Simulated scan of single mutants.
Amino acid sequence: MNPLFHMIAGAPDPVAPFSHAVECEGWVFVTGQMPFTESSIDSQYPEGIEAQTHAVMANLKTVLAGCGLDLSHVVCARVFLTHFREDYDRMNAVYSTYFQAGRFPARTCIGVTGLAKDARVEIDFVARR
């Protein structure tokens, strides 16, 4: 059981000391992604929860692709929102478009007091090869 530590070209630079994903025995744990639209962590986030959710999902797809996976491999997601009541429904409307109906990952959605660089949303995944 030797874990593989993945750093994915084209994914946003880490905002802290972490790997983009860690793989062990077919399980792939994808670090929570922020709504960067460029690889630099100094780039601006897009405005609004819808645009930020799209940006987060794009970054997650980049990490998954770098591991040879796609959204169909995702079995669990965690969503973190800093403006839970205001953003929950609108985030869900965007999030739901990324998965086939009836094949949504298990999920937890949590309201938090803050996220790195003042993002409104962060999402992480567990995928299975």
Results as ranks from 00 to 15, higher is better:
residue 116 A to P: 08
residue 99 F to Y: 09
residue 100 Q to I: 05
residue 76 C to W: 12
residue 124 D to R: 03
residue 20 H to I: 10
residue 120 R to Q: 02
residue 16 A to M: 05
residue 24 C to G: 02
residue 106 A to C: 09
residue 126 V to Q: 13
residue 15 V to W: 01
residue 60 L to D: 04
residue 11 A to T: 07
residue 11 A to K: 01
residue 4 L to S: 09
residue 53 T to V: 08
residue 114 G to F: 00
residue 102 G to C: 11
residue 37 T to D: 07
residue 69 L to A: 04
residue 99 F to P: 14
residue 7 M to F: 10
residue 98 Y to C: 09
residue 120 R to K: 10
residue 92 N to P: 02
residue 55 A to C: 12
residue 18 F to C: 13
residue 63 V to S: 00
residue 59 N to S: 10
residue 77 A to R: 05
residue 107 R to I: 11
residue 102 G to Y: 10
residue 19 S to K: 11
residue 86 E to A: 14
residue 115 L to W: 00
residue 104 F to K: 12
residue 48 G to W: 06
residue 104 F to Q: 15
residue 128 R to E: 10
residue 63 V to C: 06
residue 129 R to F: 01
residue 101 A to T: 13
residue 78 R to K: 10
residue 28 V to E: 01
residue 39 S to I: 15
residue 1 M to G: 13
residue 98 Y to H: 13
residue 82 T to P: 01
residue 59 N to K: 06
residue 95 Y to K: 05
residue 111 G to F: 06
residue 9 A to D: 15
residue 47 E to R: 10
residue 80 F to H: 15
residue 88 Y to F: 14
residue 3 P to Q: 09
residue 118 D to A: 09
residue 24 C to A: 12
residue 68 G to M: 03
residue 6 H to Q: 06
residue 121 V to P: 00
residue 106 A to R: 11
residue 9 A to L: 12
residue 2 N to R: 06
residue 38 E to M: 11
residue 46 P to A: 05
residue 40 S to P: 04
residue 86 E to I: 14
residue 24 C to E: 12
residue 33 Q to R: 15
residue 40 S to T: 13
residue 81 L to W: 00
residue 47 E to F: 05
residue 57 M to D: 04
residue 109 C to L: 07
residue 58 A to F: 04
residue 124 D to C: 14
residue 84 F to I: 06
residue 75 V to L: 12
residue 52 Q to F: 05
residue 117 K to V: 09
residue 47 E to N: 11
residue 50 E to T: 15
residue 77 A to Y: 00
residue 25 E to H: 08
residue 55 A to Y: 10
residue 83 H to S: 07
residue 83 H to M: 03
residue 116 A to F: 08
residue 4 L to W: 03
residue 59 N to D: 06
residue 105 P to C: 03
residue 49 I to S: 07
residue 51 A to C: 07
residue 69 L to N: 01
residue 82 T to F: 00
residue 53 T to D: 09
residue 123 I to D: 02
residue 90 R to Y: 04
residue 80 F to L: 15
residue 33 Q to L: 05
residue 119 A to H: 03
residue 63 V to Y: 02
residue 84 F to C: 06
residue 17 P to N: 14
residue 16 A to W: 01
residue 77 A to D: 08
residue 127 A to P: 08
residue 71 L to H: 01
residue 83 H to T: 04
residue 105 P to L: 03
residue 13 D to S: 10
residue 6 H to C: 08
residue 109 C to D: 07
residue 119 A to L: 02
residue 86 E to W: 02
residue 74 V to P: 03
residue 25 E to L: 11
residue 32 G to Y: 00
residue 32 G to S: 09
residue 87 D to V: 02
